[in-house]
Design a binder for these strands. Structure first.
Length: 266
DNA sequence: ATGGTTGCTTAGCAA
């Protein structure tokens, strides 16, 4: 089972490149972030024609998340399991086969100490609480998305320049670590411990050609799922050329072949 | 530290 997570930065703007990529790559599950469209605008028909069921949660102009799957997703949730009225569409969860999948778009945070930063830290506490609830104590759990945090210095092209900055601050890294402390493993690092692998490059200052990026997108897996992770990577090719998202897709492959469809129907 | 680029929506915000 191949899972891909991609901050697409406007699905409508990217659809003509996304569909051929989808046809070529044939992932079992795709988690999208920054779809930047309302649910009415979501290109469900085109994606259904491409062979994917869609669970989506959007809003006008900003944010927006989705899960695409070759098998119909069940038990869709679009909140962080709490009563908070949050106008930002940043989370969707669904069960596919026996894998509970989250597609999350963490707040950017703007600048350390800003109101947006406080919201980011609060949001992480809410995500952690949500993942800890019984509803999500699935056998297999994957938390995928744009975390807007570079977890370690290896995830940063110039750790000295970025020290303490947004996406690299101690508070954010602590929030990410607390998430992992629930028992989640960063699947890329199971297979690629080396520095210099990035998933986001700023549109400005020729950041991509200079490879001045950060790894802020990830696929986190609980212990039972991580134990079956056979490969992981970042599809840097999709950041090349014009009219691309500023993020590349990140992916992980899992060997879960012993699950039959019939087992899943129940 | 600043500004640069892109997307959405139409001057300015968010990233």
């Amino acid at each position: 089972m191949k899972i891909v997570s991609w901050n697409i930065n406007s699905l409508r703007k990217r659809i003509d490149r996304f569909l051929p990529w989808l046809a070529e790559t044939q992932p079992d599950i795709v988690c999208l972030q920054e779809t930047k469209c309302t649910d009415e605008q979501f290109p469900e028909l085109a994606l259904r024609a491409a062979g994917y069921y869609c669970a989506f949660h959007g809003q006008k102009s900003y944010n927006g998340v989705a899960i695409l799957s070759k098998i119909e997703p069940r038990d869709v949730r679009t909140t962080l399991c709490d009563e908070v009225i949050d106008p930002h569409a940043r989370v969707i969860a669904a069960t596919i086969r026996n894998v509970r999948v989250f597609s999350v778009y963490a707040p950017n945070g703007q600048a350390v100490g800003s109101p947006a930063y406080d919201y980011k830290i609060q949001w992480y506490a809410r995500l952690r609480a949500c993942l800890g609830k019984n509803e999500n104590s699935a056998t297999y759990l994957a938390v995928c998305g744009d975390f807007n945090i570079a977890p370690r210095d290896e995830d940063v092209h110039d750790p000295v320049l970025w020290r303490g900055a947004i996406m690299c601050s101690e508070g954010e890294r602590a929030a990410f670590q607390q998430l992992c402390d629930l028992g989640l493993t960063d699947t890329l690092r199971l297979h690629h411990p080396e520095a210099g692998l990035f998933s986001w490059w700023d549109y400005r200052m020729l950041a991509f050609p200079k490879n001045r990026g950060l790894r802020i997108d990830a696929i986190l897996a609980n212990a039972s799922l991580a134990a079956n992770c056979t490969a992981a990577g970042i599809d840097r090719e999709m950041r090349k050329g014009k009219e691309t998202s500023d993020h590349a897709p990140v992916w992980a492959e899992f060997e879960l072949d012993n699950i039959s469809e019939l087992d899943v129907e129940r």
